[in-house]
Amino acid sequence: MSSSTTRRGDRVRSPRRDPGTTDARPAARRPLLSRVLGVQPIGWLFGAPYLVFAIVVFAYPLVFAIYMSFFDYFFSAPGVEVDKPFVGLDNYIAVLTDPAVLQSFGNVLVFLVINVPLTVVLSIVLATALNKVVHLRTFLRVSYYVPYVTASVALVGVWLFLFGGGGLVNNVLGPLAPDPSWLVNPALAMPTIALFVTWKQLGFYILLYLAALQNVPQELYESASTDGAGPIRSFFSVTVPGVRQATVLVLMLSTIIGANLFTEPYLLTGGGGPNGASASPVLIMYQRGIQQGHPGFAAALGIILTIAVLIVALLQRRFAGGRDE
């Protein structure tokens, strides 16, 4: 793993070195094609399908989203021209003054405050335990990964059954069961969704931590135990700092995935209910943009959401990344 990392680093830099080596040779001896396109122009041909794909479904829609957010955009049948007036920042102002949008951002905040720390703590602890386990290793790995590989739509069905008014969870809790029940309780709807997503995604983060744990030098554990550190002490002073890069990645990924929540509030709480208490920004993007036909508003909301998430992710990288950044 560590050897492949250094090798990867070399390869990433190598394209920048190429022009230098190219210029060193007499230019006349090299055909025009390879002078313009590089030593092996066939690379362009091999990369072309991906490049076309990335331009058609990524770069162009990205630019289009920004363009649309400045217009009062209307849906029209193919070929029909409808006036789509330029409205400047109106869409952005409408988004930022919309109480439903503000509520949805608050909901996501609640979600992230529960989901992100829970994800980091549980995945690092379970990965550390799994890493040392000898028996039933495959069985345990499969059990933790299996919610991650299963469709949200299928798992939502079971959670509706488990956490419904007369569901098994309430039956087990008996008099402790919340009233109104989990998914129809304004205070508990978002935390329940956060719990669902933590459970569903945890396997993926355990996988990332397991990969990172293979890179923690064994000598560090040995010298920690020579210094008299027990397993708990060496977890905090060797494992946790050793997998810091993975922690930053887990923080950032779980934040990005959490901020883009859609399926769970749409299905688990019947469209962000009760009374918008579990509505997410992406759910509002769908309702306003596609159901109600205001794609300009939805695009502006999407851009604001993405920028907000990017800022949070960069802050996480800055503060959790530590000195080695």
Binding site: Y60, P61, F64, A65, F75, Y286, G289, P295, G302
Partner: peptide, 19 residues
């Protein structure tokens, strides 16, 4: 870049413009 940001323009392009 999250898919959700691209969802609206992709919907307009693929469903509305390209049919």
């Amino acid at each position: 870049v999250p898919f959700q940001l691209l969802m609206i323009p992709l919907y307009v392009l693929i469903a509305r413009n390209y049919g």
